[in-house]
C-alpha cells in the first residue's frame, strides 16, 4: 500500500483479464458477488443486461466487452462493482474485486500513448503501483455515456 500523503484519493480496484483497473471510491455504491442478470436483446453488445438490486434496476456493463477483451471462461462468473452516476446505478462486470487504496495526485501519470485504442478512450491516468500498472478509468466513458 502506498503511504497516505496529503493529497491522496482512494480508489476501488478490480481485475479484468489480468489487468488492474480502478475508479474513485466516491463513484462506487457497493461491490457484489455474482448476480443474476436479465438479458436485454437489441442493446449494445457491452451491456450484459439488468440486475435487481433490492428493488432497484441496475444496468450491467461487461467490461471485457467494452475493452475489447475475450469473454470470461465458461466456469467462471463475474463480480459486480456498482457505481452511482448521474442519479442512476450501473454495475461493472469484473473478474475479481481488488483492494481499496490511496493514490496521491503526484503518482498519477499521464496515459501512455502506446495503449490500445479501447483503453485510451476510457483511461484518465495510470499509476505504477507495487510493480504493476494500475489504470484509472473515467466512469462516464467506460459506461459508454457522453463525458461528464
Amino acid at each position: 500500500m502506498i503511504a497516505t500523503s496529503q493529497k491522496a484519493e482512494q480508489y476501488v480496484s478490480f481485475w479484468v483479464d489480468g489487468q488492474l483497473l480502478g475508479v474513485p471510491v466516491s463513484a462506487v455504491q457497493e461491490v457484489l458477488n455474482t448476480q443474476e442478470i436479465a438479458r436485454t436483446p437489441r442493446s449494445k453488445p457491452e451491456i450484459a443486461g439488468l440486475l435487481n438490486l433490492r428493488g432497484q434496476i441496475v444496468t450491467a456493463v461487461d467490461l471485457r466487452m467494452s475493452l475489447g477483451l475475450p469473454p470470461l471462461e465458461e466456469e467462471k462468473s463475474s463480480m459486480n462493482v456498482v457505481l452511482r452516476f448521474r442519479g442512476e446505478s450501473f454495475s461493472l462486470l469484473v473478474d475479481e474485486v481488488g483492494d481499496v487504496f490511496d493514490v496521491s495526485k503526484e503518482s498519477i501519470l499521464p496515459v501512455p500513448r502506446t495503449l490500445d485504442a479501447h483503453w485510451l478512450k476510457v483511461t484518465t491516468g495510470v499509476v505504477r503501483q507495487e510493480g504493476r500498472l494500475f489504470i484509472i478509468l473515467d466512469v462516464a466513458t467506460v459506461l459508454g455515456l457522453p463525458a461528464s
Binding site: S43, L50, N52, I57, T59, E88, F90
Partner: peptide, 18 residues
C-alpha cells in the same frame, strides 16, 4: 421503471419492471 440511460434509445422498450 425507466429503461436507464444506456438503453433509452432502443425503440422497442418502454421501461423495465420487477
Amino acid at each position: 421503471k425507466p429503461v436507464g440511460l444506456l438503453m433509452k434509445d432502443i425503440a422497442i422498450y418502454q421501461g423495465t419492471t420487477i
